[in-house]
Design a protein around this nucleic acid. Structure first.
Length: 353
DNA sequence: AATGCGTGGCG
DNA sequence: TCGCCAAGCAT
């Protein structure tokens, strides 16, 4: 066993994390759900979502049988919603193609929607004790420092080096502690800022520490200017109800419920009449909400409209008239939730006036 | 292979 | 306030 692995395993057992909700189980499904939620999301954010999700969907079968709408309700606010859609799709595929048993084959796992090499390795090692390496942001940072690998770790070339390094370090025994240790070390010791090198089990062999360049590694991602976009969300109100529409299954907020959008500011009445067959009149703009994505910034102008007449016999499935409370319980993106809060606050103000 | 895909916390 | 990025994957 490599010295690296030996020290890491010993360190993990004594100083690593052991009480996270998805630890101390060998249920592949429970581990799988956690790994998907933890893709690009931090542990502290995931914990609450994970507990509610597992309470509602405790088994693979229960998830497979649920509607996509309900799965997205439980994912609402967590972001990267393709993870939820793929989670649901994979549960259904395992139910039909693999007799409901989570596959233990590393290659088969990677053929399932939403499971890539690193996630497959995490499941394979945690659930089945297999010798496969993960390579997430934590591991990239640990390896880039320990072996002084320069260059942005997201580039194909550097990433390939890191995969090879990670593989070369694998132990043949103790994979659960080893895999957890890789992540724990990056998350609690070899952190991006203010790493605790004095407490690191690898301080004797870390090349970056010896060369005094821990702070320059890993090489930061090349910057790009992110575009600023605008949209207007139409809050169509009829009595106590508002209208949401289901977004297309691909693209931003895919499959979630949201307010209808337009980029045209003028003649909203005609637009609403044409697009939805609704007679409505614009009210005073409610607010402008700033929302930052990873790849662009969005200013959302919130435009309430008073609907005087709703067609009696429309009920197309992509539209839904809901109370604010009902909307708040649906699979909605974060800015929509913020707008619903504004509407509730407005109603409260009116009540007390 | 570079880009699209969310959100929240932190310095 | 703002840039950075977190248990990545799909295309």
């Amino acid at each position: 066993m490599s010295d690296f692995a030996k020290r890491l395993i010993a360190w993990q057992k004594q100083h690593g994390r052991h009480g996270l909700p998805w630890q101390n189980t060998s249920d592949a499904y429970a581990i799988y759900v956690s790994e998907i939620m933890l893709q690009q999301s931090q542990v502290s954010t995931v914990i609450g979502y994970y507990q509610k999700f597992m309470q509602r969907f405790p088994t693979l079968a229960s998830l497979a049988q649920a509607s996509q709408d309900e799965v997205l309700q439980y994912w609402s606010g967590l972001g990267y919603y393709s993870r939820a859609r793929n989670l649901h799709k994979t549960a259904q595929r395992i139910a039909t193609d693999y007799a409901g048993i989570f596959p233990d084959d590393f290659t088969v796992m990677q053929s399932l929607p939403g499971i890539g090499r690193s996630t497959a390795a995490a499941i394979a090692s945690f659930a089945f004790g297999q010798v496969q390496t993960i390579l997430d942001g934590n591991v990239k940072r640990v390896l880039a420092r320990h072996f002084m690998v320069s260059g942005w770790t997201g580039s194909k070339k550097v990433e390939q080096q890191l995969w090879q390094l990670a593989e070369s370090l694998l132990p043949q025994q103790g994979m659960v502690a080893y895999t957890q240790g890789l992540m724990d070390l990056g998350a609690t010791v070899c952190t991006r800022s203010q790493p605790k090198c004095a407490a690191c089990p690898m301080q004797g062999s870390c090349a970056a520490l010896q060369a005094n360049c821990v702070y320059t590694l890993p090489t930061p991602k090349p910057k790009k200017t992110i575009p600023q976009k605008q949209t207007t969300m139409l809050v169509l109100r009829h009595g106590e109800q508002i209208m949401l529409e289901k977004r297309p299954s691909s693209g931003i907020w895919g499959g979630l419920w949201s307010f209808p959008e337009t980029d045209a500011a003028d003649d909203l009445e005609t637009l609403v009449q044409t697009r939805f067959g609704l007679s409505a009149s614009s009210q005073a703009p409610l607010a402008t909400i700033s929302h930052a994505f990873s790849h662009y910034k969005l200013s959302i102008h919130v435009q309430p409209m008073h609907v005087t007449q709703v067609p009696s016999q429309v009920s197309e499935p992509q539209y839904s008239w809901l109370s604010v409370e009902e909307a708040n319980a649906a699979g909605i993106p974060t800015p929509v939730r913020k707008i619903l809060q504004l509407l509730l606050a407005e109603a409260q103000t009116k009540k007390s006036a």
